[in-house]
Amino acid sequence: MNPVTALPDWPFPRWIAHRGAGKLAPENTLAAFRLGASHGYRAFECDVKLSADDVPFLLHDGTLDRTTNARGRAANRPWSELSRLDAGGWHSRQYAGEPLTSLQALANFLRRNHHWLDLEIKPTKGDEERTGRLVAAEVQRLWAGDPLPPLLSSFRPEALLGARQAAPELARALLVDTHWPNWVSMAQQLGCVAAITNYHLMDATLLQHLHSCGLRALVYTVNDPAPVQQLLAMGIDGIITDAVDQFAPA
């Protein structure tokens, strides 16, 4: 029988606001982070990718179509163009004119307010490892000296490999939407401290297995009370939610 691996220290909050407060305000914008913070959240999740001139900025999709007033592949535009787009009008008139957020602007907000971040690396297809390297290097620079720098997460192992090469001291987590062969072993090989799964995948057996492998267990995106209660009873380490107005973080 293999020995149980010790769990890493876990100073991070259990409750994490998804994309800021990405349903009540335009996702991945500073407006969403401010709204999440107004509901008492001190930990946030968001998505980061690279502009054409390698500026890390917040966006979930590969294209600008859904969440800005522009169209086309986000990675084709320099930050000087992206920074002038409207990333709020699609959500509601209240947020019209809200700009896209650079990672630097987000770091300024989070560090000033002593908030924590799960930063999901969203690479453009074919640019996974390089994106991981550049994002990790920028996180290392922006959070220099911070006692609780971001957790770097990704669905793409290549992005986490790049992050490890650039900044091995930064904590990493593998994101998992469906079970695929040997993903727990992959997380261990990448030196991850956590796995973040679709909450439908998580049960007590998987949670115990992750803990026995030395991995913290987090889940996304949980918006209903019933699964929240089940997950809390299991001893889940982190819950990512859109419902910042329903669940009071403790």
Rank of each mutant, 00 (worst) to 15 (best):
M1E: 14
N2T: 15
V4A: 15
A6L: 10
L7H: 02
L7D: 04
P8I: 06
W10A: 07
W10P: 04
P11T: 10
P13T: 12
I16N: 04
H18Q: 08
H18P: 04
R19T: 05
R19I: 05
R19E: 04
G20I: 05
N28E: 09
N28V: 09
A32S: 15
F33E: 03
F33A: 05
R34I: 05
G36T: 08
H39P: 06
H39K: 12
Y41N: 06
R42A: 11
A43E: 04
D47Y: 08
S51H: 02
A52M: 02
D53I: 06
V55T: 15
F57N: 02
L58T: 07
L64C: 10
T67M: 09
T68Y: 08
T68H: 10
T68R: 09
N69L: 12
N69I: 12
A75T: 01
A75E: 04
R77A: 10
P78M: 03
L82Y: 03
S83M: 14
R84T: 15
L85K: 12
G89S: 10
G89V: 08
W90C: 07
R93Q: 15
G97E: 13
T101S: 15
L103V: 07
A107D: 03
N108S: 14
W116A: 13
L119Y: 01
I121Q: 00
K122G: 02
T124C: 04
K125V: 11
G126M: 05
E129H: 03
T131M: 02
G132Q: 00
V135D: 00
A136N: 01
A137P: 03
V139N: 01
P149K: 05
L151R: 01
R156C: 06
P157F: 04
A159Y: 00
G162M: 02
A163M: 00
R164Y: 01
A167P: 00
P168Q: 07
E169N: 09
R172A: 00
L174W: 01
L175H: 00
V176H: 02
D177N: 13
H179C: 11
N182E: 15
N182K: 14
M186I: 13
Q188S: 14
G191I: 05
C192T: 00
Y199N: 12
Y199V: 10
M202F: 06
D203F: 07
D203H: 12
A204V: 13
Q208W: 07
L215K: 02
L215W: 02
R216T: 03
T221K: 09
D224C: 06
P225R: 03
A226Q: 13
A226N: 05
Q230M: 11
L232F: 00
L232I: 08
G235Q: 11
G235S: 09
G235N: 10
I240H: 06
I240F: 09
A243Q: 12
V244D: 03
Q246S: 14
Q246H: 14
Q246W: 12
F247H: 02
A248C: 10
